[in-house]
């Protein structure tokens, strides 16, 4: 087990290192100099040089990369070119919206998909299964931002059950915060729930065909008991993989959904920064998202080992 964890951990560090290099290199090749962009075309050369020094743009690239990575590791994400405030502070405010939204959506997706997938698998080929599968075909095809617009139209504008947009803020209480995130979370979750339902169903059906399921029936377990006691845990491996992928998709997906609901999350920050060419913010936010994705994949790998004893023992 320890060996497996160390191996995954090494792979996590390596992935992070390579990803940071790619991001840094891409931002480096971006045309235009942030300092001249900030000061306009009529800037004096001396002011420009002073600003470049202040922003740390006058040192060699290798040193800049190391400063950037070192800063990230200690929680210092640099200073925004446009706002002149620490990026870490800006990100912290925004992530308090985006991360809860992604998690909310992920939980919704799991809460919908597990029962639906188990239901469909246990009624394979019967009307219940066909109904669920038909619904998932529709769900998978549903663009989340379009669905978000439709939700606003019905539940915010017509029925007035939820706010049409904006974020109440966590200081107004948990319920107020969750209420403003509910429609966005549903919009994000439903298409993902459709995918997860299909994966859950097919993973269960694969397991149902395994020899050990027949052994379990021969012991005297009913079909339902067999599914719960022996099927579910074996079906979890592909399901965990997809849950891992969904988190990264949902986290990135908040960027778009925030546009529909006017939520002050990472998405808004990143679009503002792109148009202001505030590349240090773009760089840090992208690195943060990539870090979250890699971390989740690491956790999924650990979850595999919990589920499957074959991964725990040294080979």
């Amino acid at each position: 087990m320890l060996r497996y964890m160390l191996k995954r951990l090494a792979s996590l560090v390596l992935s992070l290192a390579v990803a940071s290099l790619i991001i840094f290199a891409l931002i480096e090749v971006a045309p235009g100099d942030p300092a001249s962009f900030m000061l306009g075309i009529n800037a004096q050369p001396e002011t420009l040089a002073a600003l470049r020094a202040e922003l740390g743009l006058d040192v060699p690239k290798v040193q800049r990369y190391l400063t950037w990575v070192g800063g990230m590791l200690t929680g210092d994400f640099g200073t925004s070119y446009t706002y002149r405030t620490p990026v870490a502070e800006m990100v912290a405010d925004r992530i308090a919206v985006s991360l809860p939204l992604a998690l909310y959506a992920l939980i919704l997706s799991i809460l919908i998909a597990f029962p639906a997938g188990i239901f469909a698998a246990s009624r394979r080929g019967r009307p219940g299964d066909l109904g669920v599968m038909g619904a998932t075909q529709f769900g998978v095809a549903l663009p989340n931002f379009w669905f978000a617009m439709m939700l606003v139209l019905v539940f915010a504008i017509q029925l007035r059950w939820f706010p049409a947009g904006g974020f109440a803020g966590w200081d107004k209480g948990l319920l107020a915060g969750l209420t403003s995130l509910t429609l966005p979370a549903i919009a994000l979750a439903l298409p993902q729930a459709a995918i997860l339902t299909r994966v859950m169903r097919s993973a269960l059906l694969d397991v149902l065909g395994e020899d050990f399921m027949r052994t379990a029936r021969a012991k005297g377990l009913s079909a339902r008991q067999t599914l719960w006691r022996h099927g579910l845990r074996n079906a979890m491996i592909p399901v965990l993989t997809i849950i891992g992928l969904q988190f990264s998709f949902l986290f990135a997906g908040t960027i778009i959904i925030e546009q529909v609901f006017y939520l002050p999350g990472l998405g808004r920050l990143i679009f503002q920064s792109i148009s202001a060419r505030d590349l240090i913010v773009v760089e840090s936010v992208v690195m943060l998202v990539v870090f979250a994705v890699i971390l989740i994949n690491f956790l999924v790998d650990l979850a595999y080992a919990v589920v499957d004893p074959r991964l725990r023992s040294p080979k």
Binding site: R217, G220, L221, P309
Partner: peptide, 29 residues
């Protein structure tokens, strides 16, 4: 009925299969 069959299987009739490699659930001891 299926209920009674479940009570019978494993209790009155036992069965052994061909493939020992796949006849056991890999995630349970």
């Amino acid at each position: 009925p299926e209920r009674d069959l479940c009570a019978l299987r494993g209790n009155d009739i036992g069965m052994i299969f061909q493939e020992p490699m796949t006849a056991l659930n890999p995630v349970h001891s």
